[in-house]
Nucleic acid binder design. Structure first.
Lengths: 337, 337
DNA sequence: CTGAAAGCGCTTACAG
DNA sequence: CTGAAAGCGCTTACAG
């Protein structure tokens, strides 16, 4: 591999001058600058990031921590984040943690971060107290998306509004018997999204003077398969709900599947609405509440860049960005039978 | 941050001894070993990966290059890969390239890899000749999944078999008029999967003595939305196919959506089959041909680890792993009307 | 078994 | 504007 010394020799200057013309703040005489650039190009010189980091103290790497990639939200936001970071000269170290905190062994290791990354983007991962403590001890610039950790800046959507929009849509259609999928499970107990959505669901019914059917509020793990299984007894029951609100489109798709298997027509016999506006929502005609995932990713990156470039590492701006959501009615919701 | 010198001082030994007891091959006297370990623990010492890399020449980082994260295949395989790499002490640098080669600017930069990673996992990304040349110049250990690049080891599925299984399933049911979605688009022209699948489709019909309806073989970009749009005129046409084979489940889901909108019952009026066994396939009752994505990810990691640890960097084993697929008939395929 | 020292490839004050 | 030199925090022969 060619080093800075090779370039210096070919250009007939010192390594310091090479370093300066390549990134330096100081001025370099145009002619020597050209010589250096030519030599670097000729040798296909690429500075060793490892040496650069050691000397400069910055790694230009950001850790992106997600509980999984297989869910639409994470796949989408990671794509946006990786591109936004790259535009700003940062590389993305991906850490997929799994969504069950405190399993067999510690999921989070200091080695993942210490002196390896300049900052952390924490995506909707529930933490144990030990993990929170570790992150605090790390004292790295960090921005959370979805789940907030202690005093870290956070970007999220207005989860209460999202659920409220969905409920109000169903109420407006005339529904009174509404099932809900996706309360806070054990593994997400520390996260605000599941709790906020189900609370808003309950509140909206209450405001409308309607009862909440406790046995129709289901506590499952936010996958399509779990939703499909959990909703079956409810849809077979008598009476059964005339509408289902799923806290995510993936769960809503599971409900669609079960309705089809049971011979229930959607929306004639059953209305179904989700939250997300998943890639498949349009194609399947799924009514939903849309959240702008790329916007969340870009906002998080912007906030992290600010935090990493902040002079004083103490002055927590404790910023918080909350994005609005919007109703997208499609074909799976209609007045009750 | 605490350094190796801090640990050495606290333990009353030299930094060399600390380094040795922490990773060294050489023996260290049990008592000094204990002192060092205690000191390291007390100080929460974590070696600077940057300094370690510079001194040792290895980064313990692998670049994972994917065209996107938003497709099921990539989300799934990246999850597996990240975990497999971590188990072996490697970190994952994620690079999302976009699926259109040769856009505005070069997608691939030497800076992404040079002296930054020990190896590359190349996931199904079509390359331009310039990109291939760059990768060759890099001379890094590399394993490809899906798309093969020059002499690099590759893991893929038997694409011809996958398409054949699907066609034979439809033929067995009595279908003779079959549409096909997902031939090689411009952006995937250099990749073997799209071509292999459509060729196997054609061959299978030919073997059965059936004609291929050219206007029913559609060239789209492998998304559900594109499939939903492209299949519409075909399903509205007279005559129309009695079955659709989509080269991916995501496209098949798009077809399901359009069939529903047009009031076509599946499978009574139209059979639909995909390839993948996507997370949603079970829930939606989609017949498909299953590919084992985690197995592909694990195989790729194993091959890359071997390549990175190989003594002689020249002896290309040019290995190639081809995994079989299996038919998973569900509810969306039935005999033609 | 252990320490002193060179070296990995950069950056960055400090002189000039 | 440019160079010599120290320093970033490790690893690894080389002596002892």
């Amino acid at each position: 591999m060619t080093t800075i010394a090779d370039v210096a020799k070919l250009a007939g200057v010192s390594v310091a001058t090479v370093s300066r013309t390549l990134h330096g703040s100081t001025r370099v005489e145009p002619r020597t600058r050209e010589r250096v650039l030519a030599a670097a190009a000729e040798l296909h010189y690429v500075a060793s990031p490892t040496a650069t980091s050691l000397a400069s103290g910055r790694t230009n790497v950001v850790a992106v921590v997600a509980p999984m990639m297989s869910r639409w939200f994470f796949a989408s936001i990671v794509t946006t984040i990786e591109q936004a970071l790259r535009e700003h000269g940062y590389h993305t170290l991906l850490i997929v943690l799994g969504d069950r905190p405190g399993q067999e062994q510690e999921r989070l290791q200091p080695e993942m971060f210490v002196k390896r990354v300049d900052g952390i983007l924490w995506l909707n991962v529930a933490t144990t107290p030990e993990e929170t403590a570790l992150l605090e001890r790390l004292a790295l610039p960090m921005v959370c998306v979805g789940a907030a950790i202690d005093g870290a800046p956070t970007v999220l959507i207005d989860d209460r509004q999202a659920a409220r929009l969905a409920v109000e849509h169903l109420l407006g259609l005339g529904h009174r018997d509404i099932a809900y999928l996706g309360t806070a499970v054990q593994s997400t107990a520390h996260m605000s999204t599941p709790a906020a959505r189900v609370e808003a669901f309950r509140d909206s019914l209450r405001v409308a003077g309607l009862p909440v059917h406790a046995e129709w509020v289901l506590d499952i793990d936010w996958t399509a398969a779990a939703a499909a299984a959990a909703i079956e007894p409810v849809l077979r029951g008598i009476p059964r709900p005339s509408a289902v609100l799923a806290a995510s489109d993936e769960m809503a798709i599971g409900v669609l599947g079960t309705a089809r298997r049971l011979g229930l027509r959607v929306p004639e016999d059953l209305s179904v609405i989700g939250i997300d506006d998943h890639t498949f929502a349009g194609v399947l005609g799924l009514s939903t509440v849309r959240q702008d995932v790329p916007a969340q990713g870009r906002a998080a990156v912007t906030m992290l860049l600010e935090a990493m470039n902040a002079e004083d590492l103490d002055g927590d701006p404790v910023s918080r960005i909350e994005l609005a959501t919007s109703l997208v009615p499609r074909d799976t919701t209609a007045p009750p039978p």
